[in-house]
Simulated scan of single mutants.
Amino acid sequence: MVAAQVASGLHPRPARLVDTVVALLAASATAFAAARYTPPRAALALAAAAAVGYTAEWVGVRTGVPFGEYGYSATLRPQVGGVPVVVALAWGGMGLAAHAVAVAVAPAGGLARIGTGALALTAWDLFLDPQMVRLGLWTWADHGPYRGIPVSNFLGWLLVSLLVMAVIDAVLGRPATPSTGLLAVYTVMAVMETVGFAAVFDPPDPLVAAAGGISMGVLALLAWRRRWRR
């Protein structure tokens, strides 16, 4: 996954490697979840999270709810109902990683865990949306304050992320300890995206590097701090 992410940043047409990066993200997350929770539970958790994400995207491209009015280009294939399959995989793979952060930060479970996981997943979108918009993979009907992305997108992400965390938590049985591998996936993605926007992408974007890096970084540090104390 790291190698594919680096290649994507250096490739003259990075959009071609988006599918590869996301597929490896989902595969890595599922493998680590399988080692921690058993393969059937890991596969079901990925599928459930991807289904929630796909449903939200399917509704979103037709109604503008809950993210705002947007549409996908034809670059990401295959698409089902106007939604790229890889987008659903991204919700699932990163959903598992964000849930591991929540398990570490809020071991008691409940609403604190669901909310923390939703924040961890939404923090990733501070990187994801600017990157995908600059690659022309989707466009927004209304210009927003954060690199052209409307505030409604992040509110929608938070809402959908709450649902994603709830279904993952239900499938995995509300674990008391996180998967170290999934925490690593979340941390690696935070570091890679920060470095990418700060120094690799052309042109670099210090604002996005700082916003995403601080948001994901704080949550990752909290998770590792709690993990090391056990």
Results as ranks from 00 to 15, higher is better:
E193H: 13
F201L: 14
P204Y: 03
V65K: 13
A199P: 03
T20H: 10
M165L: 13
G212Q: 01
T38N: 12
L10V: 02
V218P: 08
L222C: 14
V208A: 13
G93E: 02
G109D: 07
G181K: 02
L76T: 05
G82K: 05
L158A: 11
V87Q: 12
I214P: 13
G109E: 12
R225C: 03
R134A: 12
A51E: 08
G110Y: 03
M189T: 14
A170E: 14
L155T: 07
D202Q: 15
S73N: 12
F201K: 15
S152T: 14
A106T: 02
P175Q: 05
S179H: 01
G93M: 05
P66A: 11
A34W: 00
D125L: 08
A49M: 06
L172I: 00
L128K: 11
L121N: 05
R174Y: 05
V65A: 15
D125I: 00
A90M: 11
V61N: 12
E69R: 15
G212M: 06
R229H: 01
A100E: 03
A166N: 05
M165I: 03
V87Y: 05
A35C: 10
H99A: 10
T30Q: 04
V59N: 12
L158I: 08
S28K: 04
L219R: 04
L155N: 07
P107A: 09
W224N: 11
V86K: 05
H11Y: 11
G68T: 06
W228S: 13
A23I: 07
A184Y: 00
Q5K: 10
A26Y: 00
Y54Q: 08
L121G: 04
F67C: 14
A29G: 00
A106H: 09
W91D: 08
L172Q: 02
P107V: 04
G181N: 01
L76H: 14
R62Q: 01
I114N: 12
L172E: 02
A210F: 02
A48S: 08
W91H: 09
T38P: 02
W58Y: 15
D205K: 06
A170T: 12
D202W: 09
M165H: 08
E69W: 10
A74F: 09
G93F: 05
L89E: 07
W140T: 10
G64Y: 11
P206T: 01
S8V: 01
A211Q: 04
A51S: 12
L128T: 11
R225D: 08
L128F: 14
A199G: 12
W138G: 03
E57T: 06
A35G: 15
